[in-house]
Design a protein around this nucleic acid. Structure first.
Lengths: 209, 209
DNA sequence: GTCTATATATGGATAGAC
DNA sequence: GTCTATCCATATATAGAC
């Protein structure tokens, strides 16, 4: 990569970062290109220049941080028993959601929409793949008597649901946790607390010894 | 109430119903007054006439269906042990969220926003009150050795989180449950399934005998 | 109460100069 | 690549007729 290409990529990435933040905070329609370009300290015309349109910018923001099912599969293949695999998934999901919580907020909002846009379809499929992996891990654990019998689909929903709620509803969760500080909520300490909680919950629920 | 007042209230309620549906589907900014009035089969000017502005219509949509903490308290006071109280809350929340899922979707989106509007504050406070009630029930159950020690705040978040995810992310949850039919997802049968699952999860997690 | 017409604002996108 | 100026579409809100 030449140094000029690098500068260009940096600028692109910078626009994406700013746009991600604003879209997460306010939603797609509520944010104007004017606002994004002002916050990113670039000219309005540059958004069209780099991305073509507001819609395509939005797509770029979401797609660059989707959690691929390959990543999950690669991450858990080193473990043998279902418990280790499941706990590894909990760690991975929590890490990724904490790291990409703005993008997750956007996805969440998009999931709640009933409009079948191309991107909504893309997101739904991607999420479904991830659901399927977790589903299979739990299913196998039950078959091998490592876990007791549970409602597998709703258990999968529980894992993802808790991490999602925690990371994407921060104003309310802040109050629940009795911390005024949003930074604290996303600190290492609190991430550990969430992981520990999830593993205890699953241990009890699945009857893991 | 005179019969004319009743007609007027019916019309108001009808506008609110239509607006709620559209706001839930697309978000506040994405829906125009034109669209609402067309869908509700009224004249555009009527929205301003009845509600003053689009913003105030939005507020009216949300506030009319907020779950008051009084309702929860009244609903659980008839029970003595913490387990019964907690299970009653599960039933009540599930029923209310199923019934008012469109409004819940709107609230959820608003919760993810970081903007401190008057309504966001109102919603956060209301939710916090409900959280507190559940928190107290679990806390008391632990003190009386009815439940084992758990992370109470995250347990509260779990209960509300699961019901919220289920009711407000239907496109994805549909896929997870392997039902193409959205109607089925909100049928009596599936509501019972969710309640049963939540009670089992809590039974295992809290060590209820 | 209901409607039409309109004032006014704002947003996305781009043509064309540099 | 960057910027200004502008076109065009669409939105909210309301004045005023009926």
């Amino acid at each position: 990569m030449s140094s000029e290409e690098k500068i260009q990529n940096d600028k692109r990435a910078h626009i994406l970062d700013v746009a991600e933040y604003l879209f997460a905070q306010q939603g797609f329609e509520a944010v104007s290109i004017r606002e994004i370009s002002k916050a990113a300290d670039i000219n309005i015309a540059m958004v069209s220049y780099y991305f073509g349109s507001k819609e395509k910018l939005y797509e770029a923001v979401v797609t660059r941080k989707l959690i691929s099912s390959e990543l999950i599969l690669h991450y858990i293949e080193r473990y043998n028993c279902s418990t280790d695999k499941l706990f590894a998934i909990v760690d991975l999901l929590t890490d990724k959601f904490f790291e990409h919580r703005n993008m997750q907020t956007i996805i969440f909002r998009e999931m709640a929409m009933e409009q079948r846009t191309a991107m909504a379809e893309l997101i739904a499929n991607q999420l479904h793949q991830n659901f399927t992996i977790i589903n299979d891990v739990i299913q196998k654990g039950i078959k091998q008597k490592e876990f007791k019998k549970v409602d597998v689909e709703l258990t999968v929903m529980t894992i993802i649901g808790i991490v999602k709620i925690y990371t994407t509803s921060s104003p309310v969760v802040c109050k629940v946790l009795k911390t005024e500080d949003k930074e604290l909520m996303f600190s290492k300490q609190y991430k550990l607390r969430l992981k520990k909680y999830l593993k205890e919950l699953l241990t009890n629920h699945l009857g893991i010894k």
